[in-house]
């Protein structure tokens, strides 16, 4: 457990020392979301309808941007091999790295989303559901993305390949995440979607670090 916390703390520290990387992904998120009203038009009814989908798609893309750096630096300087050799199970350390990735890339998106939602004329209760759905969904994005990041580690054209591998797997998160807000707006209630999202998260917390560890071991052979 202390090893887990140590690795989370280390990755957070590293992220804080290189703030620009984190902020780039964050501003990417803001810009992508702001482009949609410019492209589609400012009618509030239309914006309110597309808001959940736009915010979620932008969150997927912003997560993709930051996934590359999840293992790449550690792989380049040999830290990853040391982690694999350490007496602590690699799966636990990988879980720590994924948690740190979520704290630096997912959580800021969750915190920013209500501000951007206001631009799309969402009301307070819809914003609450949006934050809740993102809070459940963004860790899922980090967990699934970590598998892709580990598989494409040190591979030619890794960045583009990563999005090709991971984006189809993000479809359920997108559907339930955006669906929760939409169901709430249309009066159906969001609890069903949120429960499914939580179920997916529980599954991913269990399986994703395991698959990521297997992929990392393949990459380090």
């Amino acid at each position: 457990m202390s090893a887990l916390l140590a690795i989370v703390r280390r990755d957070l520290l590293l992220a804080m020392r290189r703030k620009s990387e984190m902020l780039t992904a964050l501003f990417f998120f803001i810009i992508v979301v702001s482009l949609f009203p410019l492209g589609i038009g400012p009618e509030p009814v239309l914006l309110r309808k597309i808001a959940p989908g736009v915010l979620w798609v932008a969150a997927l893309l912003a997560t993709m941007l930051s996934l590359n750096r999840l293992f790449a630096a550690d792989h380049a300087d040999g830290t990853l091999e040391q982690l694999a050799l350490s007496p602590t199970p690699l799966g636990l350390l990988v879980t720590g790295k994924i948690a740190a990735h979520w704290l630096t890339s997912g959580l800021p998106l969750v915190l920013l989303a209500p501000v951007l939602g206001v631009q799309f004329d969402l009301d307070a209760s819809a914003l609450g559901i949006l934050v809740g759905a993102l809070l459940l969904g963004t860790p899922l994005l980090s967990l699934i993305g970590a598998i892709g990041a580990a598989l494409t580690l040190g591979v030619r054209g890794g960045g583009v390949l990563l999005s090709l591998l991971v984006l189809p797997l993000y479809v359920p998160a997108l559907i339930f995440g955006a669906g929760a807000v939409e169901a709430h707006i249309s009066g159906l209630g969001a609890s069903g979607h949120l429960s499914l999202l939580a179920a997916l998260l529980a599954l991913a917390v269990f399986f994703a670090p395991w698959a990521t560890t297997a992929a990392l071991r393949v990459a380090m052979e």
Binding site: V155, L161, L165
Partner: peptide, 15 residues
Amino acid sequence: ALQAAIDDPRRADKA
């Protein structure tokens, strides 16, 4: 695409 991007065939298989 993943298999095509990895040069070492054994690693490509496992990934």
